[in-house]
């Protein structure tokens, strides 16, 4: 066995070598700069405290990422247990003979003034960003991972421990809510 296959830890070098990498990894998943900073910090601290458990089989970076992943999952769990349960407005009848039909007041309205030229404006993007920010946290995370960060369905399901049909229900409810939010705040003006 050659010595070169054994990885070592060098904490003095961690910040310069991995801080940006870990931060970008985190921001793609939590999209909150302050929270991401906290998670990165916690990861380095947890790494230091468990240095003796490092066997040198994985690279330093892989090892740190595995700690960070657990921190992110813990963060999701916390969200799930409180804020994530916030209700999303229903758009369809949930029972009776009209089950699955549109509820009248929720029916999409004509988006007048949605000329294609206008759609390029920066303010429109900002309006959508603020609608996204209003989504219940769990919906926001799933929606952003899929739509903005472009993760694969399978990866999101594994990371958040949800089924694909679960994911599509969440994505769809998020999109329905965003459609309504944009209708109220942008297209009605």
């Amino acid at each position: 066995m050659s010595e070169t296959n054994i990885h070592t830890l060098n904490p003095d070098n961690w910040i310069d070598a991995y801080a940006d990498y870990l931060f970008n990894y985190t921001i793609a998943r939590v999209n909150d700069a302050d929270k991401a900073k906290d998670l990165v910090q916690e990861t380095f601290f947890a790494g230091l405290k468990s240095m003796k458990n490092f066997e040198g089989k994985a690279s330093e970076r892989t090892w740190l990422i595995s700690i960070l992943k657990r921190k992110i999952i813990d963060h999701y769990r916390k969200i799930n247990s409180n804020k994530g349960k916030a209700e999303v407005r229903m758009n369809f009848y949930s029972d009776g003979e009209r089950e699955g039909d549109w509820i009248e007041e929720r029916v999409p309205q004509d988006w007048s003034g949605d000329a294609d030229a206008e759609i390029e404006t920066e303010e429109l993007g900002e309006a959508l960003q603020s609608c996204i920010a209003k989504l219940p946290e769990k919906y926001r995370i799933v929606f952003e991972m899929k739509t903005i960060q472009g993760f694969d369905t399978e990866d999101i399901c594994n990371e958040l421990d949800i089924t694909p049909s679960n994911l599509w229900v969440i994505i769809h409810r998020a999109r329905t809510q965003l459609r309504e939010c944009m209708e109220e705040n942008w297209f009605k003006k």
């Binding site: 759609i119 920066e122 993007g125 903005i148 944009m182």
Partner: peptide
């Protein structure tokens, strides 16, 4: 619109 947000 989401593509725009992505770019922003």
């Amino acid at each position: 619109m989401c593509c725009m947000v992505k770019k922003q």
